[in-house]
């Protein structure tokens, strides 16, 4: 086993697991034949041969994330506004649905969408979104809406009452005051919370594995089931992709936050 060269390769990809890899390697060497070999060049070659297959999965991951975040925003923002400014039945209804969505594991929500509701496929003309994709988007999107509503509720609530009073004083209606004064301030303050939510959705797209949707993690599973010696190589490879995705998303949203920041304004 060409331990040194491959270890270096592994180390370059994942500093944290070097220790673990090293121990595992020692165990393998000591223990003789093990079902699994780590860091073999052939296995890495296998990974890179299938790189485009995995990149395809990564595109699906990105697509799922964007669609879910968008759906989450479209539903979550009004929901947050209702929780902040609404009263009576609509408010209680939104709150209750939110509690249920936030209290249930995403895997249960996804399986519910897919197996129970049987969300149908949609033909968009250019592409057809399968039932699994639609279930994934709906499940992740509605769950995200439940969390995004909390972000917006907090930031809308943090806009000083005096701001709304001032807007009313210049003759705006309640709705206009919310729309032109509270919302612009709240949206800017929402960036950090939104950033967090974005990366959570991105990572949780991996859980559509449960309904067999061929995104990054599912494809990696398919690959390492096919070649069981390459499990670690495949997962390290896709983890690196996930890490790059979350890292760039975070930096991009950092930049967005700075760009739209109001001088002297606080973020929530």
């Amino acid at each position: 086993m060409s331990a040194t060269s491959t270890l270096a390769l592994v180390a370059a990809d994942s500093p944290a697991s070097v220790g673990a890899v090293a121990t595992a390697l020692t165990a393998l060497v000591d223990g003789g034949a093990a079902p699994l070999q780590i860091g073999e060049l052939e296995d890495w070659a296998f990974v890179f041969r299938n790189a485009d297959y995995l990149i395809g999965g990564a595109l699906m991951t990105v697509g799922l994330t964007v669609a879910s975040i968008l759906l989450g925003f479209l539903v979550g923002f009004p929901a947050g506004a209702v929780e902040t400014y609404g009263e009576g039945l609509p408010k209680r209804l939104v709150e209750s649905v939110g509690v249920v969505l936030r209290g249930t594991p995403i895997v249960v929500i996804l399986v519910f969408m897919y197996f129970v509701l049987g969300v149908p496929s949609i033909d968009l003309g250019v592409v057809t979104l399968s039932g699994a994709v639609m279930s994934g988007i709906l499940g992740l999107g509605l769950r995200s809406a439940a969390y995004q509503s909390q972000i917006f509720r907090a930031t809308l609530g943090s806009v000083d009452d005096g701001q709304l009073e001032a807007a009313r004083a210049v003759g705006m209606s309640q709705l206009e005051a919310i729309r032109h004064v509270a919302v612009p301030q709240a949206l800017r303050r929402s960036v950090p919370g939104f950033q967090n939510e974005f990366t959570i959705v991105l990572k949780d797209t991996s859980i559509v594995f449960a309904i067999g949707l061929a995104e990054l993690l599912t494809r990696s599973y398919d690959l390492f089931v096919e070649r069981t010696t390459a499990v670690l190589e495949v997962i390290i490879f896709i983890s690196a992709i996930y890490f790059v995705l979350t890292f760039t998303t975070n930096r991009a949203l950092d930049y967005l936050g700075e760009y739209y920041a109001i001088p002297g304004g606080e973020s929530a």
Partner: peptide, 16 residues
């Protein structure tokens, strides 16, 4: 925090 929990479980179980 930058990689999915499920992938981490896979590393520990299937990988290592």
């Amino acid at each position: 925090r930058g990689t999915p929990l499920l992938a981490q479980l896979f590393v520990l179980h299937f990988g290592l």
